[in-house]
Amino acid sequence: MTDQRIDLVGLSRQELKAEMERIGEKAFRAKQLWQWIYHYGVRDFTKMTNISKNLHGKLAEHFYISRPETAEELTSVDRTRKWLYKFDDGNEAETVFIPEEDRGAVCISSQVGCTLTCKFCHTGTQLLVRNLSAGEIVGQFMAARDSYDEWPSPPGDKRMLTNIVLMGMGEPLYNFDNTVKALKILMDQEGISVSKRRITLSTSGVVPEIRRLGEVADVELAISLHAPTDEVRNEIMPINKKYPLKDLMAAVRDYPAAINARRITFEYVMLKGINDSEADARALTRLVKDIPCKFNLIPFNPWPGSDYECSGRKTIKRFVEILNRAGYTATTRVTRGQDILAACGQLKSESERVRCSRMKARIEAGIEDESHVLPASAE
Rank of each mutant, 00 (worst) to 15 (best):
K317C: 02
D146S: 05
D339E: 06
F266L: 06
L59R: 07
S153I: 11
D157H: 14
R212F: 11
K26E: 11
V9H: 05
G337M: 02
C344M: 01
Q189C: 07
A182P: 02
Y85A: 12
P154C: 08
R355F: 04
Q338N: 07
V9K: 04
A330I: 01
P238N: 07
I37A: 04
R353I: 11
L166R: 11
N296S: 10
E19D: 05
S147L: 08
G41N: 05
E267H: 06
K314L: 06
K53L: 15
C293A: 15
R159A: 03
D188W: 02
Q189P: 09
A361S: 11
I223D: 00
R67F: 13
N234W: 05
E190N: 15
I98F: 07
Q4D: 10
V334I: 15
P228E: 00
E190A: 14
S147K: 06
L297S: 03
K86T: 15
T332L: 09
I6R: 09
L245D: 08
I6W: 00
R333K: 07
P99L: 08
S109I: 08
A60Y: 02
E73C: 14
T80L: 09
N240R: 07
R81A: 13
I185E: 01
R318Q: 12
R233C: 05
H122R: 15
R22T: 00
E368M: 11
L8P: 07
Y255V: 09
L55F: 12
V165C: 09
K272C: 11
P375T: 05
Q14Y: 09
K86R: 15
H56G: 10
D247H: 05
K86W: 12
I291R: 08
V252T: 04
A257R: 10
E220T: 11
G10E: 12
W36K: 12
G90T: 06
I367M: 02
G366P: 04
W303V: 00
R336L: 05
K26C: 09
M359R: 15
C344Q: 01
S76F: 03
M1I: 03
C310K: 09
I236S: 04
I108S: 05
Q4R: 12
F120N: 07
L74W: 11
S377P: 10
R313M: 07
G156H: 13
A283L: 11
R211V: 06
Y243C: 06
M187Y: 08
P172S: 14
F141R: 01
M169H: 07
D339I: 01
R81S: 13
Y40T: 11
I65S: 07
F141D: 09
V180E: 02
C114E: 02
V207A: 05
R22P: 00
I65L: 05
E190K: 13
Q14R: 08
V9L: 12
A361Y: 08
N91S: 15
L128G: 12
I291A: 01
K242M: 04
K53A: 15
Y38A: 05
Y38Q: 07
I367K: 14
S153N: 12
P208T: 02
K348F: 13
W303T: 01
L116M: 14
K82P: 13
T115N: 10
